[in-house]
Design a protein around this nucleic acid. Structure first.
Lengths: 201, 201
DNA sequence: CAGTATTCTTGCAGTGAGTGCAAGTTGCAG
DNA sequence: CTGCAACTTGCACTCACTGCAAGAATACTG
């Protein structure tokens, strides 16, 4: 569902195409020559756009290589979590919330996969990726503090947020290890199980 | 112990002083005018050094504001962990290892505290800090894979590494919340307890 | 369909981070 | 004092990134 969704609007379609073209060019060139030997100008003109336009789409070269974009959760999932649901048990509800984020996390599997591979060769990209990840966690934490009024918890927001982030990332890694089998959220229970296994060791 | 330790060597002393002077200047100026309205040149000359020398000490402006430096663990703690000790139970040994890192993490409490405050005002610094944090976790993960030969575990390195990172950060946050009471490692058990509390909810 | 509003692209000019190099300075050992 | 190694500095340079204003493409209205 995320990979498709073709917009009828001509403007939206071009926007999407240009965005993908920039990511494609960035990943290809960086894969060939390395992150520091490719300039934004080269990426832009490979995608048939001006350097200036590149920066209308991405905040930095690194962001384009990773294909970074804002993600969120469905309003209903959000509302349910904030009001103390769906089960009322924090750990289970956290799982549902993280699953909600994962549903929107991978707009294009091929590009995501290439981004993963590039991160191995270019450690700086890992850092950028984690910075993005952190923004997602910050959003999770905002929901947490809203929920707190409906259903208090003895555990710090910090800790809960970090656990949520851990689950998000562990699921994505497990998904990648499986060769992108099913969707990312399907690997969430596995991540939770691993975490429990470690703690109960 | 970390704050003091004056080196007899004149060269080492100057190096330390210059480093601290750069951090001090960076934090002061950024606190007054904001991260993007202070140039490296201003920081450098406020510290009585050239711009070029600034980059002999730090990789970036952000690093100087955070006072980022490489940290590690004592060789003995490292060796013990790698060979499967000290207790043989992974979760406990992980705790010992994280404590070993925490012992070296805060060379100067005042500057660390100011860095924390600046991170609130400048989100970019949080990202940089997390990137640094990630380097520490990467080192932890290297130790993990070494240990694995001595004492295998059913839990992924990724997951263990993330848990270690979580404990590192949660301890630091708890330490900060306590007003920097005792040393950072003293707050580790609290972090572990919180984590267990959440999982067993 | 014509005309207008809106949104997006682009060139331009500029700031400032960060780097390699080579020459000077400073502390150190014999 | 002399030669050595480490460190600092200025210089020239590349390139990421930004604001601005003009122009092009697209959407909207009657």
């Amino acid at each position: 569902m995320p990979t498709s969704a073709p917009p009828s609007n001509a403007r939206e379609r071009q926007k999407r195409e240009r965005r993908l073209a920039l990511i494609e060019a960035a990943q290809r060139l960086v894969g060939e020559r390395g992150l520091d030997d490719v300039t934004v100008e080269e990426i832009s003109s490979a995608a048939g756009l001006s350097t200036r336009t590149f920066f209308n789409y991405f905040d930095s070269k690194d962001d384009a290589v990773l294909g970074i974009q804002e993600i969120g959760v469905d309003a209903e999932v959000r509302a349910q979590f904030v009001s103390g649901g769906p089960t009322g048990r924090l750990m289970s509800d956290l799982e549902a919330l993280v699953a909600g984020f994962l549903d929107h996390a991978a707009p294009n599997i091929e590009q995501g996969e290439r981004a993963m591979r590039l991160m191995i060769a270019e450690p700086r990209l890992v850092q950028r990726h984690i910075a993005w990840h952190q923004r997602v966690v910050a959003e999770l934490e905002a929901l947490l503090s809203e929920r707190r009024t409906a259903r208090p918890s003895p555990v710090d927001d910090d800790t809960i947020g970090m656990v949520a982030g851990l689950l998000l990332r562990a699921s994505a890694l497990a998904w990648a290890r499986s060769g992108y089998e099913g969707d990312a959220a399907a690997h969430l229970p596995e991540a939770v199980a691993q975490l429990r296994l470690l703690l109960d060791d």
